[in-house]
Design a protein around this nucleic acid. Structure first.
Lengths: 226, 226
DNA sequence: TCTGGGTTGTAAACACCGTTTACTCAGCCG
DNA sequence: CGGCTGAGTAAACGGTGTTTACAACCCAGA
């Protein structure tokens, strides 16, 4: 991976293992499947790094752990651009292969969920304004489905939650949070900002400040208005 | 490209041209350079499509053209995922090769700039609140640099602008706009949302509504506060 | 009209790639 | 000891990017 995506080759992998390429077919049916497993492994490692860092840097301040998660994610992406591209920015069939494990789909953006779920801050968010009906009809249905899915995912991870505890605004907030975090980090990794950004960390911290402000003031109002 | 990124092969290209692969080396020094040119061409086509659609759908309403730009960008990305991945989500050396033309760097995110610049709405934005000094010091310096760059880019495209006409808030707004648009579209193309999104268009329209609301109410306040 | 040089393409070859097939060989169980 | 199984290999096939040598064409100049 250090030599780029194209260098991830069956023969190269086998070479590093002291074997020949065909031997790998004893363990993986094809290169594609091997890459799939690699992605899963990278995801697990990433999730582990993030949770560890978040737990370590938990100073008790509001949103502190979540901010650490975001910063760690950015740092990891910048340090491992090839891995980031492979895991988060490539179109590969997300074909829930019958791997009969913790499924293969929840490996991607749900790292975010998984990590956030394990944070103490998560319980403290008193966003239970019960303003769920403020969302327009179709959007509400969509968010309700997300909430159900999220509660289920959290259940699998050992975090017991009921749908009553989770506001639709909170679900929507998490979604926007991930979308913006991802957008900034990807733009930075791929250097696709419209300007020559000299201090990207400044922009990133500004983004985090926005997100915190919106979280504490229920910033989904714009969406609810429409 | 219709058969995926891996299918973009020198021999395949030559085959479609009725030639053999080595003949391509009369026109491109390497495959990498050919792909680079391809990216530029895709960008040009995309910019052309977007500007045409935006001009056609210009109903005069505020932000209408900008919204059309965003929707067209999303539609294009969903219809051409391979192209999107190649152009906007791959780490290739953005090595300003001496192509002595309109440069190679301004091909990426600046499509956004280029398109926005050609829109009538652009001039109408009376965001000149002259509250530039509301940004904290380092951020302001960064934004000033962006503004300078943006004015220069617009000048190359025939749009005469002075730095006085452009608020730092407006520059920052454009940056956030692009970041969020990109984030959502990439997540949708790569199916990396944390939930199984059944109606992505709903989410997208919600995003646009947020952006419009923030644009008309100077929504950069959170960033300026920190 | 002949000649030479530059342009444009091809064929052959090289090393590398994913993948398949046939084969070897160590280990193990009865 | 005999046979079976699992793990690894060598060889091969077609495909890839790239280089080299070579052929064919166009076109200016004598």
């Amino acid at each position: 991976m250090r030599e780029g995506r194209e260098a991830v080759t069956l023969r190269a992998i086998a070479r590093n293992l002291g074997m020949t390429a065909p031997a790998l077919y004893r363990y993986f049916p094809s290169r594609e499947e091997l890459l799939h497993r690699l992605v899963e492994e990278i995801c697990s490692d990433l999730a582990e790094v993030i949770t560890a860092r978040a737990r370590a840097a938990d100073t008790g301040e509001e949103m502190g752990a979540v901010l650490t998660v975001c910063r760690t994610f950015r740092g990891w992406a910048l340090a491992h651009p090839t891995e980031f591209e492979l895991v988060f920015a490539s179109q590969q069939a997300v074909t829930d292969a019958p791997t009969d494990g913790p499924t293969s789909r929840d490996q991607f953006g749900s790292i975010f969920l998984r990590v956030i779920a394990g944070l103490p801050d998560f319980e403290d968010e008193e966003l239970t304004h019960a303003d769920d009906e403020a969302f327009p009809e179709p959007m509400r249905d969509e968010l309700v489905a997300y909430r159900r899915e999220m509660v289920a995912s959290l259940g699998e991870l050992g975090v017991e939650t009921t749908e009553e505890q989770l506001t639709l605004s909170a679900v929507y907030l998490i979604l926007r949070w991930w979308s913006r975090l991802y957008g900034h980090v990807a733009l930075e990794v791929f250097q696709r900002f419209p300007f020559t950004v000299s201090n990207a960390e400044l922009l990133f911290e500004s983004l985090l400040a926005e997100l915190v402000a919106e979280a504490s003031s229920g910033g989904a109002c714009q969406a609810r208005a429409r």
